[in-house]
Simulated assay, not measured.
Amino acid sequence: MKALVSAFNAWTCIVISAFGIVILSIIGSMFASGHHSMMGSTEDPVNGGKVAAAVFGAVVVYAVFLVFCALQAWLHARSSGRGEIALR
C-alpha cells in the first residue's frame, strides 16, 4: 500500500489532531459539567449538554484524522525500512 500524503504532513496532522482532541475534550467536559467559566453569562447557551455533544462530535472527527495520519506515518516508516527510494 502506498502513502497518500508525505511523512511531514502525516506527522504534522498527528500533532495537530492530538492537540485538538485534548483541548476539545477539556472544553466539552466543561460544557457538560456546566462549569461557570463556560455557562456563567446570560449570552451563553442554556443547555450545555447539547453544546458538549457537538464538541465531542468534533473530537470524534479529530480521532478519525489521527488514525488516518498515523496509518500514513506507519506506511512511510515501513517503506523507508525496506530501502525504497523516496522521490520528493
Rank of each mutant, 00 (worst) to 15 (best):
H35R: 00
N9G: 10
S41G: 05
F8A: 15
V64R: 00
M30I: 08
I16K: 10
V64L: 11
L4A: 09
F8N: 15
F68V: 12
R78V: 04
G40W: 07
G34S: 06
A70T: 15
A63G: 14
S17T: 14
G40D: 11
R78M: 02
I14S: 09
V46H: 09
L71G: 09
A10T: 09
R88V: 13
V15Q: 11
V22L: 08
S33G: 07
I27W: 08
S41D: 11
A7W: 02
S25V: 11
N9R: 12
I27V: 10
I85H: 10
G49Q: 12
S79N: 12
N47D: 15
M30R: 14
M1K: 12
S80I: 12
G20Q: 02
G40Q: 04
S80E: 15
I23Y: 05
G81I: 03
F31W: 13
V61H: 00
G20W: 01
M38C: 10
A58P: 10
F19L: 14
P45Q: 15
E43N: 11
H36T: 04
G28Q: 02
S29T: 15
A70D: 03
S6R: 13
V55D: 01
W74H: 08
S25R: 02
F56A: 04
K2M: 10
I23R: 08
V51I: 12
G83H: 01
S29Y: 06
F56G: 00
L75R: 09
F19N: 06
V22D: 02
V51T: 15
I85M: 04
L75Y: 03
T12P: 01
G34C: 08
S17M: 05
S29H: 12
F56T: 07
I27C: 04
I85E: 13
W11V: 14
H36E: 05
I26R: 06
W74F: 11
F19R: 05
S41F: 14
W11K: 12
I26F: 04
W74K: 01
V46M: 09
F68M: 08
K50I: 15
E43W: 13
R82H: 06
A52F: 06
S33C: 05
H36K: 07
T42V: 14
Y62T: 13
I26W: 03
M1G: 07
L87A: 12
F19D: 07
Q72T: 04
I23P: 01
L66I: 02
L66M: 09
V60H: 05
V61F: 04
A10N: 08
A52Y: 06
D44N: 13
A77E: 03
A63L: 03
Y62D: 14
V55Q: 03
S6C: 08
I26E: 06
A54G: 12
V5K: 13
M30Y: 15
E84C: 09
G20E: 02
F68C: 07
L87F: 13
L87W: 12
